Simulated scan of single mutants.
Amino acid sequence: MSGEERVQRERAARRAMIVSAARDLAEKEGWDAVTTRRLSTEIEYSQPVLYKHFASMEDIVAAVALEGFAHLAETLARARTDAVDPLTALRRVAHSFRRFAVDNPALYDAMFARSSQLTFAQESTATPMVHAFAELRTAVADALGHDDVDTLTEVLWAALHGLATLGRGGRLRPGLDDQRVDLLVDQFVSAHAAGPRTAP
């Protein structure tokens, strides 16, 4: 291994350590506890070292979010490909999305709630984000065969996000999370399986 390769590998390892420490700290204590000062203490590197890898806390949160989207894409892919038919796949993907949000609250907040320079639905959208959306889109397309799959996927994504966020925040009656997701998928399929509605 050349000296340059060693330097690049060490740099990548430090960057990964910073991202991992930020996520772990956020999951334990919330994102308000994640500061460059606290991170430098956690990983035993000085703040200037942090700034060699990330220009700001926002950049660190964005890096955590991108890891989250990659994880979400893998989670949805497993749910979709393990299903026996397209409708079951869509249902499994919907449940997996909600469980991901509940099981990874700080990660989910980095992805969807915190201010970030990450852009959605643009040519510049990062690959992990594209892949996460594509998994949900594929489940919708396979189950519904609709003309406007992108819009339908956005609507389902928004509805699942709403259920997950309200449920996590204690705004919905407890113990009914699975029933709500099943109802959402049933109503969604019932309303759109036949294709786009025509104007009256």
Results as ranks from 00 to 15, higher is better:
T153F: 00
V155I: 13
Q179S: 15
F54K: 02
L160Y: 02
A194D: 14
Q187V: 11
R91Y: 06
V155R: 04
A193L: 12
H53P: 03
E135D: 09
R37I: 10
T36Y: 08
R180H: 09
E154N: 15
D186H: 12
D103T: 11
A77F: 08
S20E: 14
L152Q: 07
L72H: 06
P196H: 09
S96L: 06
A79H: 00
D182F: 11
V61N: 02
V102A: 14
D59K: 06
S56G: 04
Y108E: 01
L176G: 05
F97K: 01
F120M: 00
H131K: 13
A134M: 07
Q47P: 03
R168W: 00
Q179C: 11
G3L: 14
A89Y: 04
H192C: 13
I18E: 02
G3A: 12
D147C: 00
A139F: 01
G145T: 02
A22K: 06
F97E: 07
D178K: 05
D142G: 04
E58F: 04
W157P: 00
L72C: 00
T198K: 09
H53A: 06
V7S: 10
Q122W: 02
G68D: 00
P200R: 08
Y108N: 02
R9P: 07
V181E: 05
F112R: 05
Q47Y: 11
G175W: 09
G169R: 09
A194I: 09
G30L: 07
R197V: 15
L144R: 00
L50T: 01
S124F: 12
E29S: 11
R92H: 05
R168I: 01
M129G: 02
S116E: 10
D150G: 13
A70N: 09
A126R: 05
P196S: 12
E123M: 11
W157G: 12
A139C: 08
A89N: 04
T138W: 04
S56Y: 10
V93E: 02
E27R: 04
Q117H: 12
V64T: 11
A141I: 03
L50C: 09
T151Q: 12
D150P: 00
D32F: 10
P86C: 12
H95P: 03
L156S: 01
Q47V: 15
F97I: 01
R137N: 13
R114Y: 05
E29G: 00
A94S: 15
Q179T: 13
L25R: 05
T138V: 06
Q179K: 10
A94C: 14
L152G: 01
D85V: 09
A141H: 05
S96C: 07
P174K: 08
V61T: 09
E123V: 14
S116W: 03
A62G: 08
L76K: 01
A13N: 07
P174V: 07
R92W: 02
D32G: 13
E74K: 09
E74T: 15
E4W: 06
T119V: 15
T41Q: 13
A33N: 11
R80D: 08
F120N: 07
H192Y: 15
L118I: 05
Y45G: 00
L156A: 03
R99W: 04
A126I: 07
V64L: 10
D85F: 13
F133Q: 03
S56A: 15
R80A: 14
R92E: 05
T127A: 14
A33Q: 07
G175M: 10
E135K: 01
H161W: 02
A77P: 01
R11P: 00
M57N: 06
L107M: 10
F120R: 10
A132Y: 00
A33H: 06
L72E: 03
